[in-house]
């Protein structure tokens, strides 16, 4: 694995930018793609958001001051891009969140999950923004609270509380879905 500082140095050098970008993609692209995909749900949207985020990273790498780690900075950019995209998509739909999610997944050729998986996505997408992000990062990516705290700018205690609420709401949603 290439060291983050080395990737940053490459990205900031005018002759080594492309090599730095390749190294960054090689190390982070899968993690970042799946992080985005869990927010926007469909592959088509995730692909758009991911590519836009990466171009943004490439263009602004020279200005990156290193206040945060490269890992944190990348997640922040991708999270913001994905949330903005999801908000726009929701604005154009008059339907309820559960219906919105079901329709998106139904129309995605790269989703073949069963009813329980659709119900889980509906429950997660219906959560308040921060709870959704914490749940995705903790449950699917097994990230440390300290890292999530850096990315979202929330205290570790606040994140633990958010995760706890998120799990309770999802459980309740799944049970309700199973009974009905």
């Amino acid at each position: 694995m290439t060291d983050d500082q080395h990737i940053l140095d490459l990205l900031k050098g005018s002759n080594t930018q492309n090599a730095g970008f390749s190294a960054l993609m090689h190390k982070y692209q899968e993690r970042l793609y799946w992080h985005i995909r869990r927010i926007v749900l469909t592959h088509e949207d995730a692909d758009d958001v991911f590519q836009n985020s990466m171009i943004k990273v490439f263009r602004s790498a020279a200005k990156f001051r290193g206040d945060a780690s490269l890992y944190t900075w990348l997640y922040r950019i991708c999270t913001n891009e994905a949330l903005t995209h999801l908000k726009k998509a929701k604005q154009h739909q008059a339907e309820e969140v559960s219906e919105f999610v079901a329709n998106r997944l139904k129309n995605d050729p790269y989703f073949d999950g069963d009813k329980v998986q659709v119900a889980l996505k509906q429950a997660v997408t219906a959560l308040p923004e921060k709870q959704m992000l914490v749940f995705n990062m903790k449950y699917y990516q097994n990230m440390k609270y300290e890292d999530i705290s850096q990315i979202l700018g929330t205290s570790v205690g606040g994140l633990k509380a958010s995760y706890h609420h998120a799990v309770k709401k999802i459980e309740s949603h799944i049970v309700h879905h199973h009974e009905s």
Partner: peptide, 8 residues
């Protein structure tokens, strides 16, 4: 792991 989500 990806809950039914795939990529090309």
């Amino acid at each position: 792991l990806n809950e039914g989500m795939q990529t090309p």
